[in-house]
Design a binder for these strands. Structure first.
Lengths: 342, 342
DNA sequence: GCCAGAACTGTTAGCGGTAACATAGCCATT
DNA sequence: AATGGCTATGTTACCGCTAACAGTTCTGGC
């Protein structure tokens, strides 16, 4: 009596319905635990479904119910530790909402972002979480007209389409400058990425220079890179900037990875850290814990950003709020061992 | 005459059809570039679509056409550099096939894997790429009955459901043992993760011990960890194993990250690497380039694995093959500076 | 001028589910 | 016995789009 499923055709509700002798609607109800179904029927249906190896077709379900349990998450990169942690926050929070994150990566390209966003919206997700506030006009329009919750994350220096959760990178740069100056450093160099579309890094640098200006200082030198192993690049850039401008007494790196490379380089060369030369990075990556000295950094509240963004999309945050909301998180300076203590 | 789209209702083909004065079918043809449409009509339709900000509904499209341009990719983790590189290989290869990867993460949990797989299959993807050969019975059954190309990646020590692309981790361990013994080391310790479900790490260790046994040796000591910053754990474990068994002359780490931590620790302590103590890791992560010394490692062909897996799913690989195929890649030993040279 | 065939556009019938609304059976009330 | 209110199940009409087929007009060849 046991029916071996035909391997050629994929199963539908009808197959389960026939195998269990009830209507498709009842099967649907059982599989979604919705509505009243008698225990005996439920058992029979579940049995049949299991036996056949039935997997519901969410495409049909979504079309019929006009509900999709997907949340689009659009980020620039996966390779730099920072976004995986945001994703963790999102996933954990979404876990018990029935929502499912779907990730798209843009590689810091506005065109890719537009394409990824278009593709995602064409699946009619319940919400979108997207990194940054800067998007192409077309992307901006799509976000505004999507008719679903949109949360722009990481950054709040700008005008969000709907909601935003993040930190002020301008302010992060500003505060780092203040801390460095307070510690007595004066000849300060900057080392960063050469990515025209990394707006957050740019804003940090802007804020940093503004902070220096307040004290009547300007950047003594700067060095940019693109591509390659960040740790190695950190070494090379540090060597380059120090040979060009030997009297620098502080190096501000746009991220922890190149900062770590710089730190290793300086230790190799026997440079007196933090007395002769101070160092700082940005992000607070876990990696730093294993370094010979703790690099000064500022954490970007990545996990928290993911958590709150997911809450907003899931409608769990501030029930009352109608329109978009902006949540500003405040990063804390972790002085580590590479800035002179007051 | 310009119609502002009603922000409450989402647009359908019918809206574009009405705005451009042609049938829905013609609009559909224009937007998919399928079939013959006159230039003037095409222009009018595209214009209307753009003006309205229409985004096609792939849910409806997929249901009607029974075609979904999605490939499910199931991996255990995003946080350890190794899978992002596989994803890069997959994405780049899929780019010009019209297929789109959708990533699911299992955190090395078979239950999560089962849930993620079920969820993915319910969207009826065109194929599935999944890490590892070990799955729960239910997952195994789902994969076997899905009726789509399945590619199991990273590992080939076992029996694939359909196709497989990867390296032999057993052999990787075996060869590393041979190289270490050939370099004259005899008191060998192992440091690894305490993850019962990381089958590939286990197979490497099995192979490694087998290699030692061939030379009449056994592991002199071993140390396991779980959770936390891998770099820091590498330091701590190294300190622990060396204080417990001070006469070790080689440490084999199950991954590069803890290996790097160990290397930094040894350099801190002024231990003579590679003469008094040799070190080796596994994976060939880019990170290592920036370390003071290059850690010996074995690359896992991650990018290549992603590329080939994607080709198989896309049907671009070995046109003639009917059933599943197994592609074995061979990792190469990179001796770096932490193994004595012959 | 007629016809085959291409080029273009429209019509119809689903794809596999679910919302919304029947319907049927059963029990406790009145 | 009739009424009402459950619970348990079935029926019908779509969701938004596309495959398949059915026109219709436009070509060019003879």
């Amino acid at each position: 009596m046991a029916r071996i499923p035909d391997p050629k055709r994929t199963l539908t509700l009808r197959d389960v319905s026939e195998a269990s002798g009830v209507s498709e609607m009842t099967v649907s109800r059982v599989l979604r635990s919705r509505g009243d179904v008698s225990d005996t029927t439920r058992e029979r249906v579940l049995d049949a479904a299991r036996k056949l190896g039935y997997v519901p077709n969410k495409i049909a379900g979504a079309l019929a119910s006009q509900r999709v349990n997907l949340v689009g998450v659009i980020i620039p990169s996966l390779s730099n530790m920072v976004f995986p942690e945001v994703l963790t926050g999102i996933s954990e929070t979404l876990e018990d909402t029935g929502l499912q994150p779907v990730v798209g990566v843009t590689n810091y390209s506005p065109e890719r972002e537009e394409a990824v966003l278009y593709e995602m919206l064409s699946w009619r997700p319940s919400g979108v979480i997207i990194a940054g506030l800067e998007h192409s006009d077309a992307s901006q329009a799509m976000l505004a007209n999507a008719g679903i919750p949109i949360v722009e994350i990481m950054d709040i220096d700008g005008t969000p389409v709907d909601s935003a959760v993040g930190i002020s990178h301008r302010r992060a740069g500003l505060e780092m400058a203040a801390a460095i100056i307070a510690a007595g450093y004066r000849r300060i160099g900057f080392l960063g990425t050469m990515m025209p579309h990394d707006h957050r890094a740019r804003k940090r640098l802007d804020g940093f220079e503004e902070g220096l200006a307040k004290a009547g200082l300007t950047l003594a030198d700067r060095e940019f890179y693109s591509g390659g192993s960040a740790l190695l690049k950190g070494r090379e850039m540090t060597a380059a900037i120090l040979s060009r401008t030997p009297d620098l007494d502080f190096l501000y790196y746009s991220n922890d990875m190149i900062g770590a490379g710089g730190l290793l380089y300086c230790l190799d060369k026997g440079i007196d850290i933090p007395n002769k030369l101070g160092l700082a990075g940005f992000n607070g990556v876990e990696l730093l814990d294993g370094l010979p000295r703790r690099l000064a950094t500022m954490d970007a509240c990545r996990y928290e950003i993911g958590r709150i963004a997911a809450e907003i999309v899931a409608g769990k945050h501030r029930e009352g709020v109608i329109g978009g909301e902006v949540v500003e998180l405040t990063p804390t300076l972790e002085p580590g061992d590479t800035i002179r203590r007051a």
